[in-house]
Write a protein that binds this DNA or RNA. Sequence first.
DNA 1: GAAGAAGTGG
DNA 2: CCACTTCTTC
Lengths: 262, 262
Amino acid sequence: MKIATWNVNSIRSRQAIVLDWLAANPVDVLCLQETKVVDLDFPREPFEAIGYQLAISGQKSYNGVAILSRHPMTEISAGFGAVLGEETDLDEQKRVITAVIGGVRVVNLYVPNGSAIASEKYDYKLRWFALLKTYLAQLQGSAVPDLCVCGDFNVAPDDRDIYKPDGKDKHIMASPPEREALASVLSLGFTDIFRQFTPDGGHYSWWDYRRGGFANNRGWRIDHIYLTAGLCDRAQACTIDIEPRRREKPSDHTPVIVDLRN
Amino acid sequence: MKIATWNVNSIRSRQAIVLDWLAANPVDVLCLQETKVVDLDFPREPFEAIGYQLAISGQKSYNGVAILSRHPMTEISAGFGAVLGEETDLDEQKRVITAVIGGVRVVNLYVPNGSAIASEKYDYKLRWFALLKTYLAQLQGSAVPDLCVCGDFNVAPDDRDIYKPDGKDKHIMASPPEREALASVLSLGFTDIFRQFTPDGGHYSWWDYRRGGFANNRGWRIDHIYLTAGLCDRAQACTIDIEPRRREKPSDHTPVIVDLRN
DNA sequence: GAAGAAGTGG
DNA sequence: CCACTTCTTC
């Protein structure tokens, strides 16, 4: 089973690129972030026409997540609250959706960017990571404890994940507190599956639109796929496909794909 | 000598379509309207690269006219004031440019739309037509009196020029006062050269983007080429090329072309 | 640098 | 419906 994650930076603007990619890469599951559209306006039909079912949770302008699956999805839920059974202001932004697909619980996340260190949004990001840990712990104790947690984490886990790490510890996506917040979540028992196959640096999933970030390969690896122990042994490969980033009017992110043995 | 007129609705958005059209239709002169760009930002280079010289007069966001010519241009001037020798508020919007090319004085116009009857903009349109008459009379008395006056006139001269004329006399672009204002200008001695070759209705140069105007051929003929008597005999053909209107992301207007015998 | 919003214009 | 503006976000 192939599972991919892709921050598309507006599904309406990226529809053709995503459809082309799925035609060439018919993954079983595609997790999208930054769909930027309310559920009623999500372009469902073209994806259903090529064989995908959809679980979506979006809002106007910002955020928004979706799971596209070739196989039946059960236990679909959006937001932390649906699992934790409590309301939280962290669910006002649509950043979390999950579904069970082929015995695997897929969790699709769009972690807050955080804007700048010492901003209100940075605090929000740290609070969000804290609740994410509680949320994932709850799911690990569920009847389907094999988790594939993927999405745009807006954190480069270590210096191999940044084109030029010097001084980036004061930069959003690389500052110690957010790295520690992510590490704390992963300490529940998650493996960065890309790193199981590729220990060297220089592999990125996001390049800033500005100043020729992609042309000069000034990228960051901030889109991740994390697996619980029961799934790690099944992973046969984890790759980043930079092809869609080369297209006209691309997303600033590109897909990450994991292949799980049946 | 072939002279064409085309309201491109932003030259920056339409650059590729215009270049493709010129590759297939290497007219001697192309008059553009609604370039929507200040002169410093006009994309000169791609047009110069295929052999055109440029005379441009543009502004931010709205209006803007340009003449592209394969032959030398002399007596280039923009606005009514440059010819009439007096300042006028009607020159604040960039709607007039002229140049002498191969012994013909080409006048390129973007007539105000007028918004709605009884609006302030409608009065502006009528005032503009009045000054246009003075302007053209002046040019007729100049050393180069053979005029080719073309552009987006935002007036359908008669009912043949509207897909469904019923009730359109209360519609902008067809109301009697603006038709009379145009007729008064033409009474100086101008011939609607398209009508010399094509007397029947159903030939349009503009289709509203809305409600499938083009798909249903609900069009208007509002882009015109008017010739003084000395040039009429030289006209061999006048056609509307609807091909560019079929393209992806087209202008709502399409080119009108006149072919003048040497 | 690119996206969506809300507004104006045609 | 499409393109422009300014604004905000990432």
